Amino acid sequence: MEFETIEVKKEGTLAWLILNRPDKLNALNLKLLEELYQAVKNFDSDNDVRVIIITGKGKAFCAGADITQFTELTPVNAWKFAKRGREVMDFIESIGKPTIAMINGYALGGGLELALACDIRVASEEAQLGLPEINLGIYPGYGGTQRLTRIVGKGKALEMMMTGDRIPARDAERYGLVNSVYPSADLEKETRKLAEKISEKSPVALSLIKEIVNRGIDSSLLTGLSMESLGWGTIFSTEDKKEGVDAFLKKRKPNFKGI
C-alpha cells in the first residue's frame, strides 16, 4: 500500500514506519494521522512482523501538530481533531506487538505524544523533547497530560506542560522519559539491535506483558496482581511456553512461533 506522508519497510521480523514530511518537521495533519493508523494496523496484522519501529525523516522525529490548520478549526472540529489524534495514539499503545519510538530529533507536542504511546523510547543525543502547547494558549490533546504524568510523575509533567520548555535527551533519560540515548551515528544501529533482541522473544508473552502492564497501571495493585496470575496461567497453554522450557532444558536457542 502506498502512502503520501509516511514510508514503510520491513527487515525480516522488524517493521519500520517513517514519518515523511521533513519540510514540515514531520508535523501531524489529518492525512498523516490516518496513514499512521493504517500502517500500524497493517503491521499489527502481519504475522511476520514482531516489532514496529516509528521514526521521522530528516532532523525531526515529529514537531507536533501542523499549526497551519489551527486557524481554520472551529471548536467542534478542534474537538474532533484532538479526539482522532488521541484515538490513533490509543491504538498504537493497545496493539499486541512491541513498538519502539526512535527519536532522531525534535519530539514536540503531538510528536512527543506519539512517542509516549510507544512501549519504548530511544533517542539521539541531539534530540529535544517537550510539550510546548502552552505557548499557543492551549494544552496537549493527544494523551500527553495523562501519559507523560504516568511516566515521569506529576511534578515533572506539570513543569514541562506549564513552561512549555524543551528538554535535552540526556535529561529525558534521567527523568525516565526515554529508555536510552545514543550518538546520532549509532541511533539506528542500537535501535535495530534492541528491536531484534525483543523480536526473538515469544510474541504471546510480549503481548500479555503489554496488556497486563497497560491495564494494571490504572488499576489497584490487587487487581493488577490478579491479572498477572491469570495471564501467567493462560500462557501455560501455549506452544511458545513448551518451546521455551524445552529449549532451556536442552540448552538450545528457542524458536518461538507466537502460538
Rank of each mutant, 00 (worst) to 15 (best):
N20E: 07
A117F: 01
A169P: 03
V122Y: 01
I103D: 01
V51P: 01
E93I: 01
A205L: 15
I235A: 07
E228P: 00
R166V: 11
G96D: 11
K24P: 00
P98K: 08
K31I: 14
R21C: 06
G258I: 01
R170A: 05
A157H: 04
E72G: 09
I151D: 00
R50G: 02
R166S: 14
Q38K: 15
E188R: 13
G105P: 07
D246N: 13
N214T: 05
K257G: 05
K210H: 05
V204D: 02
V51T: 06
A101W: 01
T68K: 15
M227E: 14
E133F: 13
D90S: 12
E125Q: 10
K41D: 06
E125M: 03
P75F: 13
A127N: 10
E133W: 11
P98N: 05
K31N: 11
E133A: 15
K31E: 12
K241F: 13
K59G: 15
G137V: 11
G12I: 04
M162P: 00
F248P: 00
N47R: 10
E243V: 08
M1N: 05
D90N: 15
G231A: 09
G12W: 03
V213N: 08
M227K: 10
A157R: 03
I198Y: 02
A27M: 15
G111Q: 05
F43E: 01
T163G: 09
A27Y: 03
I120K: 09
L25R: 14
V76G: 01
T74R: 08
P75W: 09
P140E: 07
A63Y: 08
N26Y: 06
M89G: 04
F3E: 08
D186K: 13
K97A: 05
S202P: 12
E188W: 14
S229R: 15
I52Q: 01
L194A: 11
